[in-house]
């Protein structure tokens, strides 16, 4: 059976639908919300920008108001790390807003979406990984060098009297397992969120490159 034999019939069949949309129906559709991946990323970016601003304000306040010098440095450092990340998020949002991929060819559209998604995932991953040394190494170092006594920690030390080797091993195991856990969790989360979709789009791009 040849495809050409069925051109007219298939065209006729495909051009039918269970609904006929009037002008009023189309006008009503224009008031609805789009659900494309670009819209989804924009929503994510706005949510992350909002969260970053809230965190910067909160951590900035804690950094300035805490009585412990370690806390001042710790929260101020966090606030500073969030500044470039917020700028990167704004840059990505601007880039996406300028993007009008639907008028591009199918191949270029796929490549643009994949490139945006990969950049978003890369930045997200980098940022999460950057937070690990700040969270753990910096926190332990600051806690260790704090001049003011930190009562809750002092109470634990007085109660359990842990040996120096126990503290070293515990710290090492705790930091390693959390780092490895966060690394794999972030990888898994990003794959679940966008990774599988990106892989699907890459298959289509490769399919288009196959004959080149």
């Amino acid at each position: 059976m040849e495809l050409d034999e069925f051109k007219d019939i298939l065209n006729q069949q495909l051009a039918t639908d269970h609904l006929y949309r009037s002008e009023a129906d189309i006008a009503a559709l224009l008031r609805k919300k789009a659900h494309s991946i670009i819209v989804k990323i924009k929503k994510s970016l706005w949510f992350e920008i909002f969260s970053c601003i809230v965190i910067m304000l909160l951590f900035g306040y804690l950094g300035l108001s805490s009585k412990y010098s370690s806390m001042n440095i710790y929260f101020s450092a966090f606030t500073l790390v969030f500044v470039p990340f917020t700028i990167i998020l704004f840059y990505l949002l601007k880039k996406i807003n300028r993007l009008n991929t639907n008028s591009l060819s199918v191949k270029n559209n796929l490549q643009s979406i994949v490139s945006i998604l990969e950049e978003f995932m890369k930045r997200y991953f980098q940022f999460t990984m950057v937070l690990i040394p700040i969270c753990f190494v910096f926190a332990f170092f600051l806690g260790y060098t704090e001049k003011q006594p930190i009562e809750p920690i002092d109470q634990i030390i007085l109660k359990y009297k842990p040996s120096y080797s126990f503290i070293t091993i515990f710290t090492f195991v705790y930091m390693t397992s959390l780092t490895v856990g966060i690394y794999y969790f972030t990888k898994w989360y990003l794959k679940k969120l966008y990774g599988n979709y990106v892989n699907e789009l890459k298959i289509y791009i490769n399919e288009l490159k196959e004959t080149e």
Binding site: T101, N102, S103, L104, V106, N109, L110
Partner: peptide
């Protein structure tokens, strides 16, 4: 073009 891009992605 728009319809196919939307459907594929």
């Amino acid at each position: 073009r728009v319809a196919l891009n939307t459907a594929i992605t």
